[in-house]
Design a protein around this nucleic acid. Structure first.
Length: 972
RNA sequence: GGGCCCGUAGCUCAGCCCGGUCAGAGCGCCCGGCUGAUAACCGGGAGGUCGGGGGUUCGAAUCCCCCCGGGCCCA
């Protein structure tokens, strides 16, 4: 099928048809969340991409003009890290040594490689996107769009430069944004360290502070208390300790201090200004030069009474609140820690230590000096680098930010509330995040990314944002140096003249947060191809879907840029996806080796069954990927396959075609199936529209397996076997064909390969004229209203239900289905279908349950006394679920016939050949049966005479039939 | 510490929003049928305290509260 699509360029034709011939149709605008081209597709990705494909194929069949541009995230840390791994790099220095130019080239190559993989894997999966016009975040036109956004933000006063304490990954050598940090929290065990700050001028009196990051004590510059809380002075041994009153109990319990006396109680505000001696004064020399307000008690209302001691150690360089507090008191954010995570020479005895390793050393020193109160453990969440897993720390540095103003925030919240979220609870998550959104740190000290388009004057500091390469060429001092591709390092050579002072302006050496790349996809994807004229038609996009963690990622950055840039939400409907876990329900990870790679898997097992499995659970729940489970879905598809084969076998035999069928009178089971079809179409449509793809799978498969294969086909078998092309047979064919055709179309979004195959091989064979080139261009099925007969459906449904009960009774009483039960009666209740329909329903019941005579009567017949009773919604059914002598003999006769047929087959007699003689030896009732039904046997077996013997003939075949010996021989 | 999701037969899951048809399906298992869809097809059965407890109600898997277990997010 894949080859069929490729060779005939089916996708391209579909795209053209969809857009050219539906000029007045509504647009279904999908925005692709670009996969990062830094690794292979695993089944988790495959799930998301399957969901996308289902929605898009459905929309095409529903007649929308479907916008389905593909996209790739091609820059940023994820790609750089992959290249570093490949080249064996450990730090940024390795990159500098290797050369930025070559490094960037490597990134480009790696991206090319992975994009090729993703395109192949996506196509193999069946995801139809416009790969020919995929947007790539590294494309110069795309980058210009990002610049345009930055410039717009700047024009609105939302871009600013600031020295800020931001989370930093020492390994990657760059700051991270809050949404990146949000993705990297891990539960870890850390030290819980209580230590003393000796107060100046008060002998043996100590503030007790608490920290989970002892290394930050090296950069401690102050202590903070809550101004309105009470603090107690307690005597412990010969020392006096100060802690918050509310923390006294938990604190003393945790550190194991039992004997203490409270000797004083003071308001936090009264402690302000007290000086303390830095606990590492001797070890870290530079603290000696720090005079007040350094090393004093400050007040802050964010001091928590929930943990610690109510006295917070303040390290302005390593905590955002600390930084702000310090700044308001004129305290600089000094730190001897270098950006690479190692302590520099100023750290004294801690020089050269990795920051995490300094924890132990600090504790050791404090202990030696008698300043350690308690060293315990705490299990909590701590952020790690979302890409490389290194522990982050907060660090003061110069960065660029997008301000999330109150106005922007308000608009974002409104936007979130006005969207449709699936599942509905997702809106809470998103709103919660947006309401607490902080300014967005957009600068990264890296190489392979969109360069920050800010040039700054080396003389006066004036800065300016450039919005395009043309603008840059215009303003450059050295326009010849402006590259056609604006990546580093070339772009860094471009200089401008400062309009303020005439000095030289150079580019700020940052690249942008990769999340901004994908975040402006709503506009940049079009800009890359010069399609901005389409923007108005597509924005806000109708539907997006990604994994749940993107509430903090792409969903968020799209929203920010959309609101800031265009003042309107960028998308309207969101589907949140859960993760794919391994079959034990464990997270897939490379280190565990339990990752299932999508392409590999599909190559050996095919895409469709996998798609069904991935679709089978609610999209937002996690799904366990169990290979055995996939096989179960394959077998269900197999049923469809065989059902089609059944239809094809007979239709071909009869040279039947829908064009010749006309409008035959339908029988009740036909009406029943058509109504079931109608229900299935409705269920599948609603399910896909509301993003409940798992319901769509169920409804579609139920139609095929339960309704068509299990129920309808057995019902029409006798009609199909009629020799002539009767109206009844024609009606059965037409109904079956209609149902199969619709079922194939219903399944097309879910299992595009299977559907396409059956469409080509089956539907096209019977409708060479009226079909499309591909099933995916067919209009979504709809059962014509004139074919819907709810009353008939209701009547038939109850007959079918009754038949199931009768079958259960048969099993219970060991009565084979082949043996007809003598009789049953349908008695209407309140609201029952018409008499005529009930008569027809009676035939359904008779056929499914093999009952000789099913009557309809207003009152229970006389024999109903003692018969089995089945009570249904609007009818009651009485059934004689026992064999009388007569039927028993009939049944036994049939057993004989059946076995004689086997002999015919063994002798390979042509169907119409009349054999000479059937010799039968039978015992007991079986003999009786043969005697009584001898003519019947002659006719059915097509034999001239039947001879009943007293001894088994030689060379006869023997059976035990219901306990009686049977031996027969056939003479041809 | 706060928020959210999940916890239904051996397994994988529907149902829960909008309380009331014996709590359903597929697979597996057991029994059986068919041998004119046959390297197919079909029927039946066993199996469940609907995580636990409390409440609302005439009535709860479904609504409310608490707890336990699994997971996610935030601080």
């Amino acid at each position: 099928m894949l080859r069929f699509w490729e060779e005939n360029q089916v996708y391209r034709k579909v795209k053209k048809r969809v857009w050219d011939e539906r000029s007045s149709a509504p647009i279904f605008a999908f925005l692709e969340g670009p996969p990062t081209a830094n690794g292979f597709m695993h089944v988790g990705h495959a799930r998301g991409r399957t969901l996308k494909d289902v929605k898009l194929r459905y929309a095409r069949m529903k007649g929308y003009r479907v916008w389905d541009q593909a996209g790739w995230d091609t820059q940023g840390l994820p790609v750089e890290l992959e290249v570093e791994k490949k080249l064996g790099f450990k730090t940024k220095k390795d990159i500098e040594r290797y050369g930025v130019e070559r490094f960037v080239e490597e990134c480009r190559r790696l991206v090319d490689y992975y994009i090729a993989h993703w395109v192949e894997a996506s196509k193999r999966l069946g995801l139809w996107l416009d790969y020919e016009h995929a947007y790539e975040t590294r494309h110069p036109r795309y980058i210009e769009a990002v610049w345009e956004f930055v410039k717009t933000a700047a024009a609105k006063g939302l871009l600013y430069e600031g020295r800020r304490v931001v989370p930093r990954c020492p390994r990657c050598g760059t700051a991270l944004s809050s949404h990146e940090v949000a993705q990297g929290y891990q539960t870890v065990e850390d030290p819980s360290l209580y230590f003393k700050l000796p107060l100046e001028g008060l002998d043996n009196t100590y503030l007790i502070a608490w920290t989970t990051t002892p290394w930050t004590i090296i950069a401690n510059e102050a202590a903070a208390v809550h101004p309105d809380e009470w603090y107690v002075f307690i005597a412990v041994g010969d020392e006096v300790w100060v802690v918050a009153e509310k923390r006294l109990k938990p604190f003393t319990e945790e550190v194991g201090v039992k004997d203490y006396i409270v000797i004083d109680r003071r308001k936090g505000s009264s402690l302000a200004g007290l000086r303390y001696r830095h606990p590492l004064l001797e070890e870290v020399p530079y603290h000696r030069s720090h005079e007040p307000p350094y090393h004093t008690v400050l007040t802050a209302d964010w001091v928590s009474m929930e943990d610690g001691t109510g006295i917070v150690h303040v390290a302005p360089a390593h905590g955002p609140e600390d930084f702000e507090l310090g700044r308001s008191h004129g305290i600089e954010a000094y730190t001897p820690l270098r950006e690479d995570g190692y302590f520099g020479p100023e750290a004294g005895v801690f020089k050269g230590l990795w920051f995490e390793d300094a924890n132990d050393k600090v504790a050791e020193v404090l202990k030696k000096k008698g300043l350690l109160v308690h060293l315990g453990k705490i299990v909590h969440e701590y952020p790690f680098c979302w890409r490389c897993g290194t522990r982050l720390f907060y660090y003061a540095s110069r960065q660029w930010f997008i301000r999330i103003s109150d106005e922007v925030r308000k608009k974002m919240v409104e936007a979130v509330d006005s969207m449709r979220w699936a599942p509905s609870w997702a809106v809470k998550r998103m709103r919660d995040w947006v309401e607490n959104a902080r300014d967005w740190c957009i600068s990264r000290e890296r190489y392979w990314g969109t360069p920050l388009p800010v040039w700054r004057c080396t003389r006066c500091g004036h800065w300016e944002v450039i919005g395009s390469l043309d603008e840059l060429r215009e303003k450059a001092v050295n326009p010849d140096e402006v590259p056609s591709d604006p990546h580093r390092p070339y772009i860094d050579r471009v200089r401008l003249r400062c309009p303020k002072c005439g000095g030289e302006m150079v580019r700020e050496p940052f690249v942008l947060d990769v999340w901004m790349d994908s975040g402006v996809a709503h506009t940049a994807a079009l800009r890359q191809y010069g399609w901005l004229h389409l923007w108005e038609k597509l924005y806000p996009y109708r539907w997006i879907t990604e994994a749940a963690d993107q509430t903090r990622g792409w969903f968020y950055t799209l929203l920010v840029t959309g609101i800031v840039w265009h003042g309107e939400k960028p998308y309207r409907e969101v589907l949140l996806q859960g993760h794919v876990l391994d079959k034990e329900g464990k997270k897939m990870s490379k280190s565990k080796g339990n990752v299932v790679w999508a392409l590999e898997w599909m190559k050996s097992h095919g895409a469709d069954p996998m798609r069904l499995l991935l679709l089978s659970r609610a999209p937002w729940d996690s799904v366990n990927f169990d290979p055995d489970e996939v096989e179960r879905y394959r077998s269900q598809l197999n049923t469809l396959w065989n059902t089609v084969r059944f239809a094809d076998t007979y239709m071909e035999l009869d040279k039947w075609s829908p064009a010749k069928a006309g409008e035959p009178r339908l029988e009740i089971e036909d009406k029943w199936l058509l109504y079931e079809l109608h229900r299935a179409v409705k269920a599948v449509s609603e399910a896909i529209e509301s993003d409940n793809m798992h319901h769509a799978v169920r409804a579609a498969l139920d139609l095929v397996v339960e309704k068509i294969s299990h129920t309808y086909i057995p019902l029409i078998r006798p009609r199909v076997w009629e020799e002539e092309m009767t109206e009844s047979k024609n009606a059965a064919y037409k109904t079956l064909y209609t149902a199969l055709r619709a079922a194939i179309l219903l399944l097309a979004p879910l299992v595009p390969f299977t559907a396409e195959y059956l469409y080509q091989a089956f539907i096209k064979k019977y409708e060479p004229e009226s079909t499309e080139e591909t099933v995916h261009l067919e209009p979504w099925p709809k059962v014509p209203a004139e074919l819907l007969d709810e009353e008939a459906w209701r009547a038939a449904s109850q007959a079918i239900e009754a038949a199931e009960k009768v079958l259960a009774l048969r099993t219970e009483r060991r009565i084979k289905r082949r043996w007809p039960l003598p009789r049953a009666a349908i008695v209407p209740k309140q609201g029952a279908p018409s008499r005529q329909l009930l008569e027809q329903a009676a035939t359904v019941l008779a056929r499914l349950a093999n009952i000789k005579n099913v009557e309809v009567s207003e009152q229970p017949p006389e024999w109903a006394e003692g018969a089995d009773e089945i009570d249904l919604e609007t009818i009651k059914v009485y059934v004689e679920a026992r064999l009388d002598k007569e039927t028993l003999l009939e049944g036994l006769a049939r057993e004989v016939v059946r076995r004689a047929q086997v002999l015919r087959k063994q002798l390979d007699l042509p169907v119409d050949h009349v054999a000479e003689k059937l010799m039968v030896y039978a015992e007991g009732q079986l003999r009786e049966a043969v005697e009584k039904h001898i003519d019947y046997i002659k006719r059915e077996v097509r034999v001239k005479t039947v001879e009943l013997l007293d001894e088994p003939p030689s060379g006869a075949k023997e059976w035990k039939v219901e306990g009686h010996r049977l031996a027969i021989k056939l003479q041809p």
